[in-house]
Simulated scan of single mutants.
Amino acid sequence: MKIAVIGGTGLIGSQVVKDLTAAGHEAVPHSKSTGVDIIGGRGLDEALAGADVVVNLTNSPTFDEASPAFFQTSMDNLLAAARKTGTGHVVILSIVGVDQVPELDYYRAKTLQEHLLADGRVPYSIVRATQFMEFMDAVMSWTSDADTVRLPATPIQPIAAGDVAAAVAEVAAGAPLNGIRNIAGPDVFTLDELGRLTLSRKGDNRTVVTDPTAGMFAAVKGDVLTDEDAHLAPTHYTDWLS
């Protein structure tokens, strides 16, 4: 099976290409560096020519009010190219609980992306993942100083990027879901608890202060970013830290 991976040189995309290739598929990575511009549309028709499946792993360069325009334009261009070339399956990566946090511009933008795909007249699959383990340092950096890291007690279910890539590759190689598959890590933590664990394992002496107003995840209500019924990945956060 020939599978075009747009955004195929990034954190998830490069691993998706590796997993698909190992499974015997012809997985071709595409990005701006290979001449494919999903916003301008340049190179998309050529990238999708002869492809059975296209996986779109491109992401908005910002998380603010500009992000909806990115997903609107990129999905319009991708779906037009898929219809033109006859590509029979479009896969995207989204976020568990994304439609439950309308307070966040980026989450509204990703929800828009899902709706555009579902309405796009091409068979599709949406893989929703929980928060990446790899992003924990960035999350802490948003609300930290030399002595303190402030984090809300938002429940999250961290998943390793490698496990996300494996799940995306599996879905891409299968029949279109025409729906959503949720994937998640095996353990649930509150974000402040996860911060303490992370700092402790790294020998970082900063103090984590529980602050319900701190950072982007302060806007999340309840446990919408977790899913006990999701397909659970094998990697535990403590093992990943090691």
Score class of each variant (00 low, 15 high):
Lys2Ala: 13
Ala4Thr: 05
Ala4Asp: 05
Val5Phe: 00
Ile6Thr: 01
Gly7Arg: 03
Gly8Phe: 02
Gly10Thr: 01
Leu11Gln: 07
Ser14Trp: 01
Gln15Arg: 11
Val16Glu: 01
Val16Gln: 04
Val16Asn: 00
Val17Gln: 02
Asp19Leu: 13
Leu20Lys: 08
Ala22Asp: 12
Gly24Gln: 03
Ala27Lys: 08
Val28His: 05
Pro29Glu: 05
Ser31Phe: 03
Thr34Ser: 12
Val36Ile: 01
Ile39Glu: 10
Gly41Asn: 05
Gly41Ala: 03
Gly43Asp: 01
Asp45Phe: 00
Ala47Lys: 07
Ala49Trp: 01
Gly50Tyr: 00
Gly50Ile: 01
Asn56Lys: 03
Leu57Lys: 07
Thr58Lys: 04
Asp64Ser: 04
Glu65Asn: 09
Ala66Glu: 14
Ala66Arg: 15
Ser67Trp: 10
Ala69Thr: 15
Phe70Gly: 10
Phe71Pro: 00
Gln72His: 12
Met75Pro: 01
Asp76Thr: 15
Asn77Met: 04
Leu78Lys: 14
Leu78Pro: 13
Leu78Gly: 12
Leu79Cys: 09
Leu79Tyr: 10
Ala80Ser: 13
Ala81Asn: 08
Ala82Arg: 08
Arg83Tyr: 08
Lys84Trp: 08
Gly88Glu: 14
Val90Gly: 00
Ile92Glu: 11
Ser94Pro: 07
Ile95Thr: 09
Val96Ala: 02
Gly97Met: 00
Val101Glu: 03
Tyr107Gln: 09
Arg108Asn: 12
Arg108Trp: 11
Ala109Ser: 12
Lys110Ala: 10
Lys110Thr: 06
Lys110Gln: 12
Leu112Asp: 09
His115Gln: 12
Leu116Phe: 11
Arg121Gly: 14
Pro123Tyr: 09
Tyr124Ser: 04
Ser125Cys: 02
Ile126Asn: 01
Ala129His: 05
Ala129Leu: 14
Ala129Tyr: 10
Gln131Cys: 14
Gln131Pro: 03
Phe132Leu: 14
Met136Ser: 11
Asp137His: 15
Val139Met: 15
Met140Ile: 07
Asp147Cys: 09
Asp147Val: 11
Asp147Ile: 04
Arg150Asp: 11
Thr154Gly: 03
Pro155Thr: 12
Pro155Glu: 14
Gln157Lys: 07
Ala160Arg: 09
Ala161Ile: 11
Val164Lys: 05
Val168Gly: 10
Glu170Trp: 06
Val171Thr: 12
Ala172Val: 13
Gly174His: 02
Ala175Gly: 02
Ile180Asp: 00
Ile180Leu: 03
Ile183Val: 14
Ala184Ser: 15
Asp187Phe: 03
Asp187Ser: 15
Leu191Cys: 01
Leu194Ala: 09
Leu194Asn: 06
Gly195Thr: 09
Leu197Thr: 09
Thr198Gln: 09
Thr198Arg: 04
Leu199Ile: 04
Ser200Asn: 09
Gly203Ala: 07
Asp204Pro: 00
Asn205Ala: 15
Asn205Ile: 11
Thr207Phe: 09
Gly215Gln: 06
Met216Pro: 02
Met216Arg: 08
Ala219Met: 01
Ala219Thr: 00
Lys221Cys: 05
Val224His: 04
Leu225Ala: 07
Leu225Thr: 11
Leu225His: 05
Glu228Trp: 06
His231Lys: 11
Thr235Leu: 03
Ser242Gly: 14
